[in-house]
């Protein structure tokens, strides 16, 4: 299935947000996830389904003032 993750088109087999995080190997200590511009709460990662053409944003903290 094709997803757009952080602006990049990727092919993924992830059925849920958690599966996508695992598939991408993201181990950042604190992330937040949006699917199609809506925030997905952490407790819903393992149940929130992903579908073809979903736009996913996965963010974390970087250095800033």
């Amino acid at each position: 299935m094709k997803l757009k993750v952080n602006g990049q088109s990727i092919d993924s087999n992830a059925g849920t947000v958690q599966a996508l995080i695992d598939e991408l190997g993201i181990k950042a200590p604190a992330v937040a996830v949006e699917v199609n511009f809506s925030i997905v709460s952490k407790k819903d990662y393992s149940t929130f389904p992903l579908k073809e053409e979903d736009q996913v944003e996965i963010v974390n903290f970087v250095g800033g003032g």
Binding site: V5, N6, G7, Q8, I10, L24, I26, A28, V31, A32, E57, I58, V59, N60, F61, V62, G63, G64, G65
Partner: peptide, 9 residues
């Protein structure tokens, strides 16, 4: 302070 940015895939 920190900033919110995309995770580096």
């Amino acid at each position: 302070t920190v900033s919110v940015r995309r995770v580096d895939l």
